[in-house]
Write a protein that binds this DNA or RNA. Structure first.
Lengths: 186, 186
DNA sequence: TCGAACATGTAAAAGGTTACATGATTAC
DNA sequence: GTAATCATGTAACCTTTTACATGTTCGA
């Protein structure tokens, strides 16, 4: 699912500029997706060329050169097709878990600093999500995305609290014959 | 944290080939990172050029041209530096949550199919992780990565079970003035 | 014998981020 | 007056995936 699909989705709620779309992503998608201007603006241009969105320029209203994009009928169809066709997978890239996997190599203080860093990050995300959870009436789907974020961050924070001491105490021990004894699907 | 760092990490446990490294990633990293041969082999070549790994060829033992890589002292130092320096962030790209965010556009049957698909995926990952959790003695860090995976997948499965009916019943309702009433950090 | 696992690699393409470049408006 | 927000865009770079290309060995 690429930025183009996300832009179509954003415009399915209401017309907006590239800037508006970026704001929506930051406000609503922050815990499960992200996109930069460098991908949004080219995507919108491409979508317009493909007839999936239309564009009207609103000059002078407040800001110059405000390009308001609207989803066309073809765009709505393409969005539904993308959502239906593309696998609903999750691509997780957690540098934090990678770090823990190799934690036996780190000095204790460096590991402690990382644990603090990730804990602050989790708390910040959790606070934000708890704040928006009841802010307005969401669709069941949107409420789900928020609730999953809340539960997952709570789980992660709890595990972090439970295991902090064990991680700091234990992190120098090396596993014996990891690949021989533990490879599971061989 | 790039594939190069991951390769250094894999070799910190024991010497191995590109193929071995890929297997370790599949066995141990599957729920928080992934890497293909197309990135691993070039990474190893680059690491060798940089003196961070060394390579000895084992011909004829069982398979021809088996290139065994070892971490050098410089490589171990570079790994520790990477792990310490790079932010321990998490980059999550959940096409499933994106789909739910726009679920109001989908026919009920298409949504139901997606819910089934993701549930199967979660269960499969959870079963796998539960299987390896007690398979051998892990470092505290490795045990943590497994336990976090288990708890997160359990949370996700539970939410999915709780909300399935609500999602299927409710998914056509549109949020009123999402951007005006709900944008949180404005 | 046939498919799975072992084993290495390349090239093109896709997809995205970062940094840069610009300038008006609004709130303090 | 000055910092944040609004607003658009490009270009270079980075990383990774996908698809291709090749060949052996082992177990059923």
């Amino acid at each position: 699912m690429s930025v183009k699909t996300l832009c179509l989705g954003a415009l399915s709620f209401e017309d907006g500029t590239g800037y508006d779309i970026k704001k929506l992503f930051e406000a609503a998608f922050s815990h499960f997706h992200s996109a930069s201007y460098g991908s949004i603006y080219p995507a919108l241009r491409q979508l317009e060329a493909d007839g999936l969105v239309s564009c009207r320029v609103e000059p002078g209203e407040r800001h110059p050169d405000r390009k308001l994009f609207s989803l066309t009928e073809a765009g709505r169809a393409a969005l539904i097709e993308d959502l239906t066709r593309l696998p609903a997978a999750e691509a997780i890239r957690s540098d934090f878990l990678v770090l823990l996997f190799f934690a036996h190599l780190l000095p204790t203080e460096a590991l402690a600093a990382k644990l603090d860093e990730i804990e602050r990050y989790y708390r910040q995300e959790l606070d934000y999500l708890e704040g928006i959870a009841d802010a307005c009436e969401h669709t069941a789907g949107i409420a789900y995305t928020i609730e999953q974020g809340i539960r997952v961050y709570r789980s992660k924070l709890q595990l972090l609290t439970e295991r902090r001491a064990a991680l700091l105490a234990d992190h120098r021990k090396l596993p014996k014959e990891w690949s021989a004894a533990c490879s599971p699907s061989d």
